[in-house]
């Protein structure tokens, strides 16, 4: 059965690009425009992988990421962050939140800085979910 990938990004063009790329390589794609919608879709489709933007209006990807990773029932779902933020910046923000909330949230399974190269993106998705 085709692996289900939830693509969360507020940029329509990025959603179209990623979903076309994954769709034409045999994945089943579901899209969402922000963290709030993404969370709803996540619970609805239980994806095998989430590609997640960080800076989005309404609700950022950070909250959704931590929602997934702090729930023992969901934490195993791999997340590939695709963001304009540098990986270091994202990890730093996570560390600060960890200290603030006294939590320990693991690093994402994959991280790609925008703009993503098609080969790189596909390679990462294959590496993570096969």
């Amino acid at each position: 059965m085709a692996k289900r990938v939830l693509v969360v990004d507020d940029e329509m063009d990025v959603r179209t690009f990623i979903s076309t790329l994954l769709d034409s390589n045999g994945y089943k794609v579901v899209v969402a425009e922000n963290g709030e919608q993404g969370w709803d879709k996540f619970n609805e489709v239980k994806p095998d992988l989430v590609t997640l933007d960080v800076m989005m209006p309404k609700e950022s990807g950070i909250k959704m990421y931590r929602n997934i990773k702090t729930d023992p029932a969901l934490a195993a779902t791999p997340v590939l962050v695709i963001s304009g933020l540098a990986r270091k910046t994202f990890l730093h923000s996570q560390k600060v939140l960890d200290q603030f909330k006294n939590q320990s949230v693991p690093e994402p399974e994959g991280y790609i800085e925008k703009p993503p190269e098609p080969e790189e993106l596909l390679g990462e998705v294959k590496r993570i979910v096969g």
Partner: peptide, 15 residues
């Protein structure tokens, strides 16, 4: 950040 998003759109379009 805003330019990176535009670049993503341009790369995506090319693809």
């Amino acid at each position: 950040h805003s330019i990176k998003n535009m670049l993503a759109g341009l790369k995506g379009g090319t693809y």
